[in-house]
Design a binder for these strands. Structure first.
Lengths: 215, 215
DNA sequence: CTGATTTTGTGAAATGTAAAACTATATTCA
DNA sequence: TGAATATAGTTTTACATTTCACAAAATCAG
């Protein structure tokens, strides 16, 4: 039976389920119900079951889900069953912090290179990390067959860098540059614009949301 | 005439409009149509008009929007007409990078303090920034009357820190800790979980999204 | 000044997403 | 063994958001 394409909102929840499963397995929990997953994640049990149903039937009625089995399935669905190669472009403070973060906390990905224009940034104290000058970008992407890039360059040069990325086969970009990127069909961009996150947060920080009303 | 509460999706777009307006004003553009705003933002013109309609009628039919006027209105709606005080909790690499980023790029906010447990992190080369030990948290929040916090502490201590934040009147949290936070009604949490962003990106990086289908 | 044009603002329709209700299947225990 | 219980999977309903279509208002051309 054929299923519909999973909406973005569903895909965003899969890594949350995965993380919870990792925690449960570490605590030797073998079976978990959608009800308990609901408590752990904050999503409703119905939603969790529905989300998983986009990809198959992984549970046992009357019992629940086997944590290890469901984890394996999720890894495969998300695409983490094989290690994903990633590059970081823009190696300022943010780029460095993100690189460190992922190398320490994210076993499913491997950062195969960082890139910066500024020669001062071309050496690093991060162990096992190759830092290249920007003109090595095409070469490394092709040689390592990289599909995913994290972008932390200044807004002014972001589009120009993205054009190179796309040209060399990058298909997904996590964009921290505060600008809209233009990409062809088939290249997925997720904007992680910290200024926008913060500003929308400030909206909600004000008790007087009544300013949104007029009479 | 009374308007409905603006949905989250609308609030998330307001800062995008604001950024475009800032750029236009810098280029001395005085009038802008929803059509051109659409080109700049990637959102449809209808959506932009509808978004703005949640808060009032700011344009002139037949002409468009006055950039300076709309900017003033948006600043007021978002809550950026007065400078917002912010604290950063967790002053590791990510906390430092975010602090620097906001101090350099975000004129609408002021970071009034950073906090960390580790004494090594309590001095900084960031000019004009106060770094405190964690036990000063309550005191500073109350003295400065802070409402917004950026959280970059380890997952294990995140909830415990959040409890202190809430207790002292913080109403909005930008959470980078990879864990679900429990907060009372009225406290807004935005999760900026970089691992989850990256993993959902990897899902889309795979040409074969057909794995989402079964036959 | 009048008709054509532009562009906003808004009610209605369509779409997408989440929640609820229901059905099917497995387990447990008397 | 079989009734009661638990829980996944599916269908239906409700809700939220976006898109569409058009009326209202301003501008412009002659």
């Amino acid at each position: 039976m054929s299923r519909k394409k999973a909406p973005k909102s569903v895909v965003k929840r899969l890594p949350v389920y995965l993380r919870i499963l990792d925690n449960l397995i570490r605590r030797d929990v073998e079976i978990i119900s959608s009800r308990v997953l609901s408590d752990e994640t904050g999503f409703t049990a119905e939603q969790i079951r529905k989300d998983l149903a986009y990809f198959g039937a992984f549970g046992t009625r009357g019992t629940g889900y086997n944590t290890s089995y469901l984890r394996e399935k999720l890894l495969r669905i998300i695409g983490l069953d094989k290690q994903t190669k990633i590059i970081v472009i823009g190696f300022g403070h943010l780029g460095k912090a993100l690189t460190r973060y992922n190398m320490n906390k994210n076993p499913y990905v491997k950062i195969v290179g960082a890139f910066d224009n500024d020669p001062n940034e071309l050496h690093t104290d991060i162990e096992g990390l190759q830092v290249y000058s920007m003109d090595k970008l095409s070469e490394v992407i092709q040689k390592e067959d990289v599909k995913v890039a994290i972008l932390t360059v200044p807004a002014e040069v972001a589009q120009q860098v993205v054009d190179i990325l796309v040209e060399n086969g990058i298909t997904a970009i996590l964009n921290f540059a505060p600008t809209k990127l233009h990409t062809p069909e088939g290249v997925y961009v997720h904007n992680a614009d910290l200024t926008i996150e913060l500003q929308s947060l400030i909206y909600y920080s004000q008790e007087d949301e009544g300013r949104a009303l007029k009479e």
